[in-house]
Amino acid sequence: NQASVVANQLIPISTALTLVMMRSEVVTPVGIPAEDIPRLVSMTVNRAVPLGTTLMPDMVKGYA
């Protein structure tokens, strides 16, 4: 089972991601792979991401 990136807090729309905002967790459905966390830092989300939500590729500008 692959770990995915999960929001560690509410991430408001257009917020630049930082390490403290994300954690890795094995979830269903599978989202962005946890090993991509370093790549996600400073990318922005294009929607509000509630606490505990799995980050999907279409939620992060420039990721997909």
Score class of each variant (00 low, 15 high):
P29E: 05
P33F: 12
T53Y: 10
V41L: 12
D36P: 00
V20G: 14
A16R: 11
T53C: 07
P50D: 15
R23C: 05
M22N: 00
I32R: 00
P12A: 09
A16G: 07
A16F: 08
A34F: 06
A64T: 15
R39K: 14
L17Y: 00
M59S: 07
T15K: 05
T44L: 13
S24I: 08
P57F: 05
T28C: 15
L55C: 03
P38F: 08
Q9Y: 09
N46I: 08
E25F: 06
P38K: 10
T28L: 08
L17D: 03
S24R: 07
D36I: 06
E25T: 09
L17P: 03
V6K: 02
T44G: 04
I37D: 01
P50G: 11
T28I: 08
V20D: 14
A34D: 07
M59D: 13
S4V: 01
E25G: 08
R23H: 05
A3K: 07
N46Q: 08
I11E: 00
L10K: 11
S4R: 02
S42P: 00
I32K: 00
L40I: 10
L19F: 15
N8L: 05
Q2W: 11
L19K: 14
V20I: 13
P12C: 07
S42K: 12
E35G: 08
S24N: 05
G62W: 07
R23E: 04
N1T: 15
V30R: 05
P33E: 05
G52W: 04
S14V: 05
M21C: 04
R23K: 14
P57C: 07
A7M: 04
I37G: 04
R47W: 08
T44V: 12
E35S: 09
P12R: 07
L40M: 06
P12K: 07
S14A: 13
N1C: 06
M22Q: 00
I13G: 15
T54H: 02
M43Q: 07
S24D: 09
R39Q: 12
A16M: 11
N8F: 04
M59H: 09
V26K: 06
P38D: 08
E35Y: 08
G52K: 04
T15P: 02
L55Y: 01
E25P: 00
M43P: 01
I11N: 00
I11A: 02
S14K: 11
T28Y: 08
E35Q: 14
M21Q: 04
A48V: 15
M43Y: 14
Q2G: 15
V49Y: 02
L10D: 15
V41E: 05
Q2I: 13
V41G: 00
T18V: 06
V27K: 13
D58P: 14
E25Q: 10
D36V: 08
P50Q: 11
G62C: 11
R23T: 08
V60D: 02
L55Q: 01
S14M: 14
L51S: 15
P38C: 15
E25H: 07
V60Y: 01
M21Y: 04
I11H: 01
L17E: 03
V27P: 00
P33S: 12
L55R: 01
I13P: 12
N8Q: 09
L51H: 14
L40K: 00
T18I: 04
I11C: 03
P29Q: 05
T18W: 03
V45R: 00
S42I: 03
A16P: 15
M43W: 06
V49M: 04
A34K: 06
